[in-house]
Design a protein around this nucleic acid. Sequence first.
DNA 1: TTGAAAGCGCTACCAA
DNA 2: TTGGTAGCGCTTTCAA
Lengths: 345, 345
Amino acid sequence: MAVTSQQIAELAGVSRGTVDRALHNRGRVNPEVAARVLKIAEELGYRPNSIGRALVRTKQSFRLGVILQSAETPTMQDVAAGARQAAEELRAQGLEVELREVQGRDSCKVLRQIDELLDWGAGGLAIASNNTADLVRRIDQLHEQGVPVVTFNTDAPDSRRLCFVGMDNYRAGRTAAGLIRQMLPGGGLVLPIAGHVNNGAHISRLRGFLDGLEGERDIRLLPYQPCFDRDDYAHEITQHTLQENPSLACVYIASNGQRGVCRAIEDERKKGRVRVIAYDLNEPNRQLLRSGDLSFVLDQMACEQGRRPLQILYHFLVDRTAPEKELFYTDILIRTRYNSGADET
Amino acid sequence: MAVTSQQIAELAGVSRGTVDRALHNRGRVNPEVAARVLKIAEELGYRPNSIGRALVRTKQSFRLGVILQSAETPTMQDVAAGARQAAEELRAQGLEVELREVQGRDSCKVLRQIDELLDWGAGGLAIASNNTADLVRRIDQLHEQGVPVVTFNTDAPDSRRLCFVGMDNYRAGRTAAGLIRQMLPGGGLVLPIAGHVNNGAHISRLRGFLDGLEGERDIRLLPYQPCFDRDDYAHEITQHTLQENPSLACVYIASNGQRGVCRAIEDERKKGRVRVIAYDLNEPNRQLLRSGDLSFVLDQMACEQGRRPLQILYHFLVDRTAPEKELFYTDILIRTRYNSGADET
DNA sequence: TTGAAAGCGCTACCAA
DNA sequence: TTGGTAGCGCTTTCAA
């Protein structure tokens, strides 16, 4: 049995209350007594039992809110699954969690959800945010009110959010560039595609990608094209490029639209000769890995992006321990058909 | 505030004790009363508070033992770090954890540690095992005695261990083969190196690798060579192969010895022209990724291999929940210099 | 079959 | 500055 505060109290000849105050410098304790208590605790290697501590805290009740954007996408549904999982765990600790889904990216809708969740009594929020002025201002307000906000998946770096959990998109872009260098040792023609011109995540991925290929003389980069996350546009871009450049070796798509790319390659009878690198390991992409349409998928651990923010808020509010850093970058996972659960041979 | 058993008791007009017995069918309760209680619990969405439950259990004290083999290797030190981390968390729940390190692979030493940990009072063990007859027999004995064993990193599949946490080596081999196919679309000469002929892990990796390259006409495989986990042997093998086959395109090394491989390639002035795929993301390999000596490292999440078995034992002994499967395969992570923390640009 | 009560380790409050 | 005590939600024991 581990040592308890009761045992320390007996050895020190004081009460548990005194021990508690001494150990956590809550004041109102004779310095000599405190020293004695501290010494005994040290010697016995006392560690407060986290369960006893947690039980006391169940007196205060906490409510946490989660707001997703682009909830219609497979990736955000994976994020949602992670959040639900964390919510279930926190429920067993007496917390309540409410999850709100917003279709598309829309700061107005997010603002509305923030209001609703506050009315409901949320004491902390996890938000898939935008870095728009209105949201930044609102998050700052929440900070003033003492309602901590953790952003996830997409950040609001200009705001006073507690921290961010998500992908380091620039580094992901560099990682993709590294894969291309491995795949095309003799060089080749590469087509980069992004989503929206004003989507910060896609732009960072693209920048990392371009920086990562700098100085590679033999790799020729076509000018990048925006496909607005749409398969039909991506299809057209790819098809057109293939017709103009039959030697195309690789397509790098930093956004959605990968199905369009793959279809175009098939339509042009180039499957197997043009490699495709895409993002996010969701069910559709698993299929495309299995069929060999995609060579690599860079994954951002969507599930953890849903789970982690809630855990951070829990620790912040309940344990009163602040997160140890501002940016929690999720691991960049390189997936092929063999390490993605796509292929169960 | 979440709903408590007290509230259910009041609504049902019975005591908490009765509610508890009804909810967990501990018997000795009037069926009608039980039905009423169950119904109310259902309606209110009652979930037992896991903290309250855990606190009760701190009465019983548990001791867990961990036994590492090959503790002198960087990878096993990563495993040890994971185990220590889990131990720290479990300590805060009132458990005690003792970690024993064995140098090299040696069933006799492991058996001795098992005895010592049992004397100390261990109620569950996590063991980096071998599948040797003596260890298998001992683990079966432990099972009979009611001391659960979780194997990790290396399994003892023939034993009655509770479950195993570690890498699916066959699949890792296939994953490596997949990378080679991506890197050598035009084919090329490949040298596979393994460690010991009787190391099951290395053999599985090799089998997966060979199976994964089957049917690839343009990829020529040299006969595989054992290097006994030694850099000097690996160096010699690689150097000799390079001299005989200057066109060598890739070395796949399923064991330790990667430093020898890289040095030989440098000695033969082939750096950058011969790709190397190795295993385990530890500090030495991070260096080799950074310097470009290694193209890919397949990682097995050593840290989690140390942490997970302790959590499984905790749940099994304390919560009395058996693990949901027998084989917990850790994710196969593909690492390059860009997604391994090797390169902090 | 049921209820009442003790107690797990900790914190918080009130009285001394 | 201290000690005593109540109570968090749950399980378990003992008595009715």
